[in-house]
Design a protein around this nucleic acid. Structure first.
Lengths: 152, 152
DNA sequence: TGTGGAGTGATAATGATTATCATTTAAACA
DNA sequence: TGTTTAAATGATAATCATTATCACTCCACA
């Protein structure tokens, strides 16, 4: 019986093969983490995740791997505004992000209307569009509740 | 006869007064630069501009002033993806940006449909929206032409 | 005209990212 | 299944944008 935890690694390995990226244990773990988790992890979280799962890894490799995956349009980089930490997200399906300015929690939003935005941009500027990113900043439900309590 | 160049400084001074921000020469020049120029300058460009115009200034003051203006929602910070340099833009009227991945030129796009995006985000996530930013990456007309030439 | 709080600026500290380079490894080919 | 080689890894140092520190300056107001 195959361990359940192995499947994501296989899925990641197949994705790497599909994109003709050389297969290494580090790359498999990093990509599988991004493919399965919805926490939009930071570099540090990814680094810790890989080590916790029993693989050796250095920060340099995490940076290199993420850049490689970005270059292949498999993942995107999100600039969470406070603290200057980048966050990363598997993004084969286009979507955008809502970011809590209080706790930095990031949630996905799926909406295909971004295409109209891109068309508007082409019309007004003549740029050739490659990709786009939309980020909404606000307060997540949890932080709304917390801040309400503090106020009275 | 009043020098033409003085008007932007007065406009900036008035804006500072309107927002109850203490008026200093450095702040006037920085804000007037952002209000009149459309080049979405970096910290370095702002620093040089202020000195070129005959005012003393330090990097610390540029950073402090920009943060102050951001806190008052007078300007916004744009993450131009290559090189990690932040760019700044006067943004009393909401708009979004198209960024050339080759030469980093940033152009404004005005389109009020962003409100629908924000509503969609609220519906899907329950976040309370504070503001949002939309960035389109692509090639500006100049770079499209340059790259076409190189190819054959 | 003296005083206090805010603003400025030279400099140091921080910390995320990038570069370096010796060592190890994946995978193409014999 | 070896062998070979270009690519990947990882420890470390270097870089550089941003932030913090703190002495000094400048006004607003008494």
């Amino acid at each position: 019986m195959m361990a359940e935890e192995q499947k994501p690694l296989l899925a990641a390995a197949n994705k790497l093969k599909e994109f003709k990226i050389k297969n290494t244990p580090q790359r498999q773990v990093i990509l599988s983490y991004l493919m399965t988790s919805h926490e939009h992890p930071s570099i540090e979280m990814i680094f810790n995740y890989v080590r916790k799962n029993g693989f050796s890894v250095s920060l340099a490799t995490v940076y290199n791997t993420l850049q490689l995956l970005i270059d292949h349009n498999l993942i995107i980089e999100i600039a969470s505004d406070s603290g200057g930490h980048m966050r990363y997200d598997y993004a084969e399906v286009p979507h955008y992000h809502v970011i809590c300015v209080n706790c930095n929690k990031i949630v996905d939003v799926f909406d295909s209307h971004y295409k109209e935005f891109e068309q508007q941009a082409v019309k007004q500027t003549g740029y050739q569009v490659l990709n786009s990113q939309y980020e909404v900043y606000g307060l997540c439900p949890d932080c709304q509740a917390k801040l309400k309590k503090k106020q009275f």
